[in-house]
């Protein structure tokens, strides 16, 4: 464990807590893409299958359990409890356009042709693009609530910090996974225009509005 990865995990944790806080305090899921949350849930389910078979550390297990349960809870809140406030008309990104290519790529490009490894690879590829429905929804509505933009900033930063973690592990631990690194770079790049808007708008106290 290094500082980059620890701070990255804490950003990821903060993002998920921020999202749950937004939903719980505003009693609304307005502006949230249920599809992205479903995809994130799928990422955790396919990545943490080894939760009970492969013990790494108490920290690792506790974080995996929290990520799994919170992502499932978020999907539940969006599609059942606060369904009335779910803006389905703007959450129209076709998930199959992400699921099928990621599944095919995971079958073709992986480290080992075994079920666990292919599912792990699928979760890595899917996580890189899972935010697209949410970014697409914001581009359609033209705006995002401030707390939603904080959520996105924390979520985008987490994988950016992981890239630093991979650099660190490459130089100091001679440890490198090209699949995780390439997907992580793609994932972080997808947030760049949002990062620009967040820093120039939200941090100036303005609401996140996309140029019409």
């Amino acid at each position: 464990m290094n500082a980059f990865r620890l701070v990255g995990d804490l950003c990821h944790l903060a993002a998920i807590v921020l999202l749950l806080l937004k939903i719980w305090k505003s009693r609304s899921v307005a502006g949230l893409s249920g599809k992205s949350q479903i995809l994130f849930g799928l990422v955790f389910v396919t990545r943490y299958l080894d939760l009970v078979t492969n013990f790494v550390s108490p920290y690792n297990t506790i974080m995996k359990v929290f990520f799994l349960s919170s992502s499932i809870a978020t999907v539940y809140l969006i599609y059942t409890k606060f369904k009335a406030t779910y803006d389905g008309n703007h959450d129209t990104f076709r998930m199959e356009f992400l699921l099928i290519p990621c599944a095919l790529l995971a079958i073709v490009v992986n480290h080992e042709f075994s079920p666990m490894e292919i599912l792990w690879t699928f979760s890595i590829y899917l996580e890189a693009v899972a935010i697209l429905p949410q970014l697409f929804m914001i581009s359609k509505t033209g705006e995002a609530e401030t707390i939603t933009s904080h959520y996105l900033f924390a979520l985008g930063s987490y994988r950016g910090l992981y890239i630093m973690n991979w650099l660190y592990r490459y130089y100091y631990e001679n440890n490198f996974d090209v699949i995780a690194v390439v997907a992580g770079i793609v994932q972080t790049v997808l947030y760049c225009d949002f990062f620009y808007l967040y820093i120039t708008k939200v941090l100036q106290g303005k609401k996140l509005q996309l140029p019409a």
């Binding site: 990865r5 995990d9 990821h12 080894d50 492969n54 790494v56 550390s57 690792n60 974080m63 995996k64 990520f67 480290h111 792990w120 992981y162 973690n165 631990e173 001679n174 440890n175 490198f176 996974d177 699949i179 995780a180």
Partner: peptide, 10 residues
């Protein structure tokens, strides 16, 4: 192999 160690990440 190196990748196996990466499975210690979240």
């Amino acid at each position: 192999c190196m990748e196996k160690q990466m499975k210690d990440e979240l």
